[in-house]
């Protein structure tokens, strides 16, 4: 087959909604886009462990501590599913780590905000995981098989994350005046960054069209953001919390809630590395990687020694 007919074959698979698998021919840009998106996604899971890890030792009860530990452990698992999905495209795990540690690869900018109070654990679960689920559910049907299968696992596990966050918010908002204030304050701080998680507006997102064509993405950033606003307004009402946006208003004609302007210069500034915790996050990952080196080397040396010993026994 010529490159042209390979391309035609690929396009027809995409058009018929047939999944692309690692050994299938695929255009270079499709491969590159996927490597970028899946590795960024994996990095986000791993970096995402840090803001919540901050509160494990200070969880207010044993139940909350067990739940938070399980959630952070899930995030490690999600990172691992996604790294292996990206590896099927021909990039090594170490190269992905290297891209993260040198700042070449990005991760979700939401994790560059600090977790100041226990209520942040509630707001992150409710809003950040809620926004993530909104993004991730359509990815279960994304065109690349290993990515789609990883996302099915991730989504199954993620819904507990959002519920536990909502439960924390509900407990706080029905608690003492101070607890209610903590919940409202966390809501105020995490609301706008959560809306930014869906990425720049469609008009400024040059890759969206191609990604939708390839069925890597199934909805645009703005479509998903609107969906998130619509469900969150209702949930905030249940919590009895005030929306941190005065422009939130039901629009009868559109059948959606209108909302205020997002501060995109803040978003780009955080993406560029100037958020409150960017340096700290990468520093923590680098430190873990460097200090873990002797463990990785020792495990490898031990495995090799054992293999050598076994072949000696066989030879004798």
């Amino acid at each position: 087959m010529s490159v042209h007919s390979f391309q035609e074959h690929f396009d027809s698979l995409i058009d018929r909604d047939v999944t692309i698998e690692p050994k299938d021919w695929m255009p270079d840009d499709y491969r590159k886009t996927l490597i970028r998106q899946i590795s960024q996604h994996a990095h986000s899971e791993i970096i995402g462990m840090l803001p919540e890890g901050n509160w494990i030792t200070r969880a207010p009860s044993l139940r909350r501590k067990a739940v938070l530990l399980a959630k952070v452990q899930d995030e490690a698992g999600h990172g691992l599913y996604l790294y292996s999905a990206a590896e099927t495209l021909g990039i090594s795990r170490d190269e992905m780590y290297n891209q993260l540690h040198t700042g070449k690869a990005k991760y979700s900018s939401i994790f560059n905000y600090p977790t100041l109070t226990w209520a942040d654990m509630g707001a992150i679960g409710w809003l950040v995981d809620g926004a993530a689920i909104m993004n991730q559910v359509p990815l279960c049907r994304t065109s690349y098989g290993p990515y789609a299968r990883a996302m099915v696992r991730v989504c199954k596990e993620e819904s507990f994350h959002q519920r536990q966050g909502f439960e924390i918010m509900l407990t706080l908002s029905k608690g003492t005046e101070i607890q209610r204030k903590l919940a409202q304050d966390a809501f105020n701080r995490w609301w706008w960054p959560s809306l930014m998680m869906f990425g720049p507006p469609d008009a400024e997102s040059p890759n969206t069209e191609q990604s939708v064509r390839w069925r890597i993405k199934r909805f645009t950033n703005d479509e998903l953001r609107q969906k998130f606003v619509d469900v969150t307004v209702e949930q905030a009402r249940v919590l009895g919390l005030e929306m941190p946006d005065k422009d939130i208003k039901w629009n009868e004609e559109r059948g959606h809630y209108d909302f205020g302007k997002i501060n995109w210069s803040e978003f780009y500034n955080v993406v560029k590395g100037n958020g409150p915790c960017n340096k700290q996050r990468i520093e923590a990952r680098r430190k873990a990687w460097d200090e873990g080196k002797w463990v990785r080397d020792a495990a490898m040396a031990h495995a090799e020694k054992r293999k050598a010993r076994q072949s000696e026994v066989k030879a004798a």
């Binding site: 691992l80 292996s84 590896e87 795990r93 990883a150 495990a299 490898m300 031990h302 495995a303």
Partner: peptide, 11 residues
């Protein structure tokens, strides 16, 4: 189910 990295079979 998927894949992972490990030094040997036990791990």
């Amino acid at each position: 189910a998927g894949s992972l990295h490990a030094a040997d079979a036990q791990m």
